[in-house]
Amino acid sequence: MGSSDAQTDVQPRKWLHPTTCLFAARALRDFGDGFVAVLLPVYLLALGFSPLEVGIIATASLLGSALLTIAAGFLGPRFDHRQLLLAAASLMIATGVAFAVVHDYALLLIVAFAGTINPSAGSVSVFVPIEHAALTREVSDANRTRMFARYSLVGALASAVGALAAAAPDVMTTVGLGQLTAIKLMFVLYAVVGLL
């Protein structure tokens, strides 16, 4: 009975290859990064911050992402990749929620530095090196270049769709929502993307 139960537990997962999960995660995340990159300065300006303050938050988020990426390089060999990706996804959820509810500049600066908000067009988050390491284990050497090309294409297309989705707050204002509320809902959507 024990061995048949173990086989039953394993079989439902066979239909979904790990690379498919990683590609889907990349698409979701880059979709979120696509609209956040466009909406972040709009949101911060709508909160009343100066262009200099907006630039400082963007710089802090890029610096924080770089440091998290370096940390992932050190931690990657010591921890399970799945655990690291789940921790990064939890950080993404917390970042989206914090940006939706926090209005204090100093707190936003800390969240930007420690979180996953990405104000650039490319994916420069903590997820990428972990996913690269996980993907290399799942394909043969001969297929690795093809797989990374697909991985990059999926990310670029999802980011483009996300950038288009940045127009959603304007659409929401036509049904009576305020612009600031509509943008906050997009940060909530960013948190939901992290949950997915």
Rank of each mutant, 00 (worst) to 15 (best):
V54Y: 13
G55W: 07
I56L: 15
I57W: 05
I57N: 06
A58H: 10
A60G: 02
S61N: 04
S61Y: 06
L62N: 09
L62V: 15
L62T: 13
S65T: 09
S65H: 03
A66L: 15
A66Y: 11
A66S: 12
A66G: 11
L67D: 05
L68F: 13
L68T: 05
I70K: 12
A71E: 04
A72H: 01
F74P: 02
F74E: 08
F74I: 10
F74A: 08
G76I: 00
G76Q: 14
P77N: 13
R78K: 15
R78N: 10
F79T: 10
F79S: 12
F79E: 06
Q83M: 00
L85V: 11
A88Y: 06
A88G: 01
A89Y: 07
A89Q: 12
S90L: 15
M92R: 11
I93G: 01
I93C: 09
T95S: 15
G96I: 03
V97R: 06
V97T: 12
F99T: 04
F99M: 08
F99P: 03
A100D: 07
V101E: 05
V101A: 13
V102H: 01
V102W: 03
H103A: 12
Y105F: 14
A106P: 00
L107R: 07
L107V: 08
L108W: 09
L108E: 09
L109M: 11
L109C: 10
I110G: 05
I110K: 01
A112I: 06
A112Y: 04
F113W: 08
G115W: 07
I117M: 13
N118T: 08
A121P: 00
G122C: 03
G122H: 01
S123K: 03
S123Y: 09
V124M: 09
F127T: 02
F127V: 03
F127E: 01
F127I: 03
V128W: 01
